[in-house]
Design a binder for these strands. Structure first.
Length: 453
RNA sequence: UCCAGAGUAGCUCAAUGGUAGAGCAGCCGGCUGUUAACCGGCGGGUUACAGGUUCGAGUCCUGUCUCUGGAGCCA
């Protein structure tokens, strides 16, 4: 089997008779020989191939254009040049797939906007290679974080009949033709079904059996949101813990963010350096800051007071009972505290039915973790475990308990205090890489009017 | 969905209402070790689309589409 370039480049000694396979990033010709930069996506760096025009398969060398794929055999030797430790002296080369002049990627920089229009080729660019290697490693780190803490991974359903109220507009799933509301009994599932907006309600059922669980899967929102932070299809991580209150929930959320930042610093060094150089100069400093400093915790009422007394004029009003706007979250994280901020105990009116009512009967045990630059990265709560209060909450929010009969059942049989939160995986990646647009941290972005690839 | 800005060569961008240009990429040639290589040459355009004003429109006006930034909704 051929060796991946990341392993070749970490060699400690010269290697005879090595085979590598990859795609040409660029070629530099001299008289009688060429340098080929070969990349196979296993790491950011290219392997420099020194290709004598006389070796089998080399001529004419102009066939080895940017984008072409090649198999190279040769000997790994120390490079006399200054840019790299090793280079491969080719003894044989094979052009596997040529790439003609219409290949859209150049060796020079492209804008992320242009690269989005060629989403099938953009993982061959430095930036997107780095983003998607990082995405893979962070997904692994997410599992590691929860598995180490004895959380059990639950696969929440993707097609669901239940609306996790307040989460957003849903995509309808149906096999009916024509008027899809005409006769829902004849639909595939015999009722209206949707793509899930959250696995939380299902996760709660498992937490109330297995103590600590988490979901990590795709979720869907049909909101017509056109921002750099919203996608119609995104991945969400939702831990849920039985016998846990809001404080335990905030502890876990903050620990999770810190842990991901630490993982990024320790395991994604090469790609992180690229982000720091081309995307966000502050990213490493910000990650170190998050790892070292405690998060600020404040109640919603305090946040409102800080904003009211800030002397700043905001576009949107600051008033107890209103949601915090982006500009308010920004002020708290970026100007007032200058660190991630966890806001908790929100007014009952602006939060969903399942959040636990506090003794003041005005606020619920909700919490949002806000980070500089992104805003809300975690939203969570302690759940209402008391049957009578839950039913009253549903009435308050004008919901029918029979639609949530199985969810209500959890409060009938061995109910326990429990809590959890949701993390948008892409938002987390944006925070950790500094990439400012959600479309650029997901392989094939789904946004309103866009599902080309 | 709302507000603002943009759309010119494959890419990144110039062009006062008056001959559509440059750099890079591509192609051809040169160079014995390059590092986004370098040097010389060549080709490359329905100025997003549809209408309008004008002697004359890339430029001004109207509409449509797309993209970007911000906002709302949220993760």
């Amino acid at each position: 089997m051929h060796k991946l370039i990341k392993h070749v480049l970490s060699a400690t000694n010269p290697i005879e008779g090595l085979t590598v396979k990859g795609w040409v990033r660029t070629r530099r010709d001299s008289k009688g020989f060429s340098f080929i930069e070969l990349n196979d996506g296993s790491c950011l760096a290219n392997l420099q191939i020194v290709l004598d025009w006389g070796v089998p398969g080399a001529g004419p060398v102009t066939r080895f254009t940017t984008g072409a794929s090649a198999i190279v055999e040769g000997n790994l030797v120390p490079s006399p040049g200054t840019g790299q430790k090793w280079e491969l002296k080719a003894t044989k080369i094979e052009l596997v797939g040529p790439a003609d002049a219409t290949y859209p990627l150049q060796k020079k920089g492209h804008t992320p906007e242009f690269l989005r229009t060629i989403a099938h080729l953009r993982p061959r660019s430095n930036l997107f290679g780095a983003v998607f290697r990082t995405r893979s490693r962070l997904a692994w780190a997410v599992h590691q974080f929860y598995q180490e803490r004895d959380f059990i991974y639950v696969h929440a359903p993707i097609i669901t009949a239940s609306d996790c109220e307040g989460a957003g507009e849903m995509f309808r799933v149906t096999t009916l033709k024509g008027d899809i509301d005409q006769d829902v009994q004849k639909d595939f599932f015999g009722k209206r079904t949707y793509l899930t907006v959250s696995g939380q309600l299902e996760a709660e059922t498992f937490a109330c059996a297995m103590s600590r669980v988490y979901t990590f899967g795709p979720t869907f929102r049909a909101e017509n949101s056109n921002t750099a932070r919203h996608a119609a299809e995104f991945w969400m991580i939702e831990p849920e813990m039985a016998f846990c209150d809001l404080v335990g929930d905030m502890d876990l959320g903050e620990e999770f963010i810190k842990s991901m930042a630490r993982y990024m610093l320790e395991h994604c060094e090469e790609d992180l350096a690229l982000f720091a150089k081309f995307v966000d100069r502050e990213v490493i400093k910000r990650l170190q800051f998050v790892v070292e400093r405690p998060f600020q915790r404040i109640e919603y009422a305090e946040a409102v007071e800080i904003l009211s007394k800030s002397g700043r004029t905001f576009e949107y009003p600051v008033h107890y009972g209103l949601n915090l706007q982006s500009e308010h979250e920004r002020f708290l994280t970026e100007e007032h505290f200058k660190c991630p901020v966890t806001v908790f105990n929100y007014p009952r009116e602006i939060k969903p039915f399942y959040m636990r009512l506090n003794d003041d009967a005005r606020t619920v045990r909700a919490m949002d973790v806000l980070v500089p630059g992104i805003g809300e990265v975690i939203g969570g709560s302690q759940r209402e475990e008391r049957l009578d209060v839950l039913l009253e909450n549903m009435r308050f929010h004008k919901l029918r308990p029979e639609d949530y009969w199985w969810y209500v059942d959890l409060r009938r049989f061995g109910s326990v205090p429990h809590a959890g939160f949701g993390v948008g995986f892409e938002r987390l990646l944006m925070f950790l890489t500094g990439v400012p647009n959600i479309r650029d941290v997901i392989p094939f972005a789904r946004t309103p009017g866009n599902a080309e690839f």
